[in-house]
Write a protein that binds this DNA or RNA. Structure first.
Lengths: 211, 211
DNA sequence: CAATCTTGATTGACTGGTCAATCAACTATC
DNA sequence: GATAGTTGATTGACCAGTCAATCAAGATTG
């Protein structure tokens, strides 16, 4: 049963996927009903969903597959490997927090995080999008910079988490826990602080350490 | 209707709460059924739950109220405010990651995180336990240390996230996303790296900065 | 070019099953 | 024997998924 009009068919399908992303993100997979999704997609019957998707799980998977790219970092890894840390890490951090400005990206992030906690399969999918792409690049880059002496040598995986961690904490305190002080903290300030602390440390400069 | 035996009553109640924590943590609030919880609590009827709790939501709230202390940081804030950063922050980080060694704490963490994403009320509860207690203390401590010149001056909220963020990233990559390299990274290494990077920075010592 | 046919798209009603919550009855304890 | 504790059955609501019927629009035919 080929679609009557390929273009119309795809448009309607995307319309349902968009609606499903919002509802899954807001309610979670279990609580989201087909009725909710149909209403959000402005179609009058939940039954129509089954014309475009096999079942609720299939719809969920299609949402991930077709909207996950919104969370991809477009980083030209090879070009950047030899650029100086401040430049590369600032761009990395900015790319990461830029997600916050995109409604669909935030919804996607929440949906994936929420389901990843109970569903290892979803966690694995998440791993193949944002974190691994990002952390893999970061770990490799930091290791290379340690090799050429630009950065202090240490566990590269731990170091990668020291850079990406503050950004994750920022996103979580803003979008999930809605902490009061997160509102007054701008993305720019946070990126700056993260990169500065990571590179220069909190120690007063003239002294080598603290404590 | 006072309990026949206060001790027995409380024991059974705790038994159900323990079971509920495990099931809520594994399945999430919506998917967790009273039957699952009854089975996990080794009681033969879901109906019994209603002898001890008003409804499913009440049970959920009781689980949080009675098991949340597992996530509390026992930090003697006032005694620590003037101790040197390396000591205080190391203890803070160790207390934070110590949660990983406790099965109930990990379950509690997952349950709260999973529900916080969709339920602002739960997020608010979470705020009044771990993060706010921790971040509030941390922010205050860092601000004080900046005042007395031990640490570089900057946005204290951003700084607090720079310390706690890597630890959160570590917990998430271990317990939620189950990333391969997280298994080889020990708590001790991660705490060490976090505190070191936070205090000393990644910059090679003899040079003040990098890039 | 109009009537009819064909087919994909859409709807709303329906079904089988699940679940939270209730209830009546049974058991153990004081 | 009264009452708390416990059980299994029951109820009523809700939901994923199915389905028959309708609609709309293009193709076919006379």
């Amino acid at each position: 049963m080929p679609p009557r009009d390929e273009h119309d068919y795809e448009a309607r399908r995307q319309q349902i996927i968009d609606a499903a992303l919002q509802v899954f993100s807001r309610e979670g997979f279990e609580k989201a009903t087909n009725k909710d999704i149909a209403r959000a997609a402005r179609v009058k019957s939940p039954g129509l969903i089954y014309h475009y998707f096999k079942d609720k799980t299939d719809l969920f998977q299609q949402v991930i597959e077709e909207r996950a790219p919104a969370l991809q970092f477009i980083l030209r890894a090879d070009e950047m490997i030899d650029l100086p840390p401040r430049e590369v890490l600032t761009e990395f951090a900015l790319t990461f927090v830029a997600m916050l400005d995109n409604r669909a990206s935030v919804a996607m992030f929440k949906m994936l995080l929420g389901e990843s906690i109970r569903k290892p399969a979803v966690a694995a999918m998440f791993n193949h999008i944002a974190p691994v792409r990002g952390v893999t690049f970061l770990t490799r880059y930091l290791e290379h910079q340690m090799d050429i002496g630009t950065l202090r040598r240490m566990d590269a995986g731990a170091a990668a988490r020291c850079l990406i961690g503050p950004l994750i904490a920022f996103v979580l305190t803003r979008e999930v826990f809605v902490q009061a002080d997160a509102a007054t903290l701008t993305s720019k300030t946070m990126v700056q602080a993260t990169v500065d602390v990571f590179l220069d440390g909190m120690a007063v400069k003239q002294d080598s350490g603290s404590a």
